[in-house]
């Protein structure tokens, strides 16, 4: 009995009816050295778009704070002001402006400041793009035939700029920006985001002003498309399973967690891939044979970048911000202590 109790301190159990998760509250003060000792971070995978890493030895509150910061508090640059000089396309001005706002911009936001309320746009708080594009007929007899303006089968073949893409946005350096970003020209993260469709004679001309902001204000400033974590699955067999039952269980798991030894014994091959679908314990007969659990202080983070930052940068930036916050909090606490005195 006490075994289960002890185990429940470190494990959450997956049951058919719900998750057995007991909040463990650390009552004692935790020395920083101990924390540092217990903390372990391993990067599992990393590429241009996302990073997966394990964090062991932290509280859910800590993990969640990081996750929340990733989503909403890492500043990025996004289009905030649109000066629309001409828009004769089908998309209304506000909708087009909204679409522009959601375009991710490839620029290091750390080099910019947040624009003050009464401040004007300048080289330190703003990146400017221009988009001026007009749809015209191509110089082929087919394209010149106005009959083909309506419901053309292949508009790209007939017209110039039948589709407006982010690649049509032109960066306009302000002040010394040209020099500053010589090596890393500012551009939209993706060149092939469709902004609008046009027909001959239609024109869009606008100035796009990017400002620095955070995801809290508007989702367009969020550097991640998603940032989440999950608890590391811990799967074990409570008793030996072999023979037909082993086959059955093995085939049940869609993620192939289980495998069968040469001896015909079932074993847990890879518990990390488990998606908690509970298919293995749906049938009553396996409920008591499998231990489905999650390690409570082992978080597997996944951060998917939108593209403004590299995924690993998001993590480090996030930690920096958390640090700042803690510092700020510490100072406030200090102030309060002093007040009390």
């Amino acid at each position: 009995m006490s075994n289960i109790f002890e185990e429940s301190k470190t494990r959450a159990f997956i049951k058919n009816e719900g998750v057995d998760y007991n909040t463990t509250v650390t009552t004692q003060e935790l020395p920083l050295e101990d924390f540092a000792e217990n903390l372990q971070i391993d990067v599992i995978s990393l590429n241009d778009e996302d990073i997966t890493f394990d964090v062991k030895g932290i509280d859910p509150a800590f993990a969640n704070a990081l996750r929340r910061i990733f989503i909403s508090e890492i500043p990025t640059m996004a289009i905030e002001k649109v000066n629309m000089w001409q828009n004769t396309s089908v998309i209304p001005d506000e909708v087009l402006a909204h679409r522009m706002g959601l375009v991710p911009i490839k620029v290091d936001p750390r080099l910019f400041e947040v624009k003050g309320k009464n401040e004007d746009h300048n080289e330190n708080n703003c990146v400017q793009f221009n988009l001026h594009i007009k749809c015209t007929r191509k110089n082929t007899p087919e394209a010149q035939n106005r009959e083909n303006d309506i419901l053309p089968e292949n508009d790209e073949a007939l017209f110039n700029h039948a589709s407006v893409y982010t690649s049509d946005m032109k960066w306009v350096p302000i002040g010394t920006q040209e020099e500053k970003f010589k090596n890393t020209p500012i551009r939209p993260v993706y060149e092939d985001i469709l902004l609008s469709k046009m027909r001959p004679g239609q024109e869009i001309e606008m100035e796009l002003m990017c400002e620095k902001g955070v995801g809290k204000t508007h989702a367009k400033w969020s550097p991640v498309s998603t940032a989440y974590y999950r608890l590391l699955p811990d799967i074990a067999l409570k008793e030996e399973i072999s023979g037909e039952e082993a086959q059955e269980l093995k085939s049940k798991c869609p993620m192939n967690v289980f495998d069968i030894e040469d001896t015909g014994k079932l074993f847990v091959k890879n518990s990390r891939v488990c998606t908690t679908c509970r298919e293995c314990i749906r049938d009553e007969k396996f409920v008591d044979k499998i231990k489905l659990a999650k390690v409570k202080n082992h978080f597997e983070f996944t951060v998917e970048s939108v593209g403004m930052y590299k995924p690993e940068e998001i993590v480090t930036e996030g930690i920096k911000i958390l640090k700042e916050k803690v510092k700020c909090w510490k100072n406030t606490m200090k102030g309060m202590e002093e007040d009390e005195e």
């Binding site: 998750v19 909040t23 859910p60 993990a63 969640n64 608890l231 298919e279």
Partner: peptide, 27 residues
């Protein structure tokens, strides 16, 4: 089909609270 893609047969998923950071007790 859900099971095939690694989801619960009943459509009920394991979620984590965005506020506390802990798993929700029910699916």
């Amino acid at each position: 089909l859900l099971v095939k893609h690694g989801y619960s047969y009943f459509g009920k998923d394991y979620l984590t609270s965005g506020i506390t950071g802990e798993p929700l007790n029910c699916y």
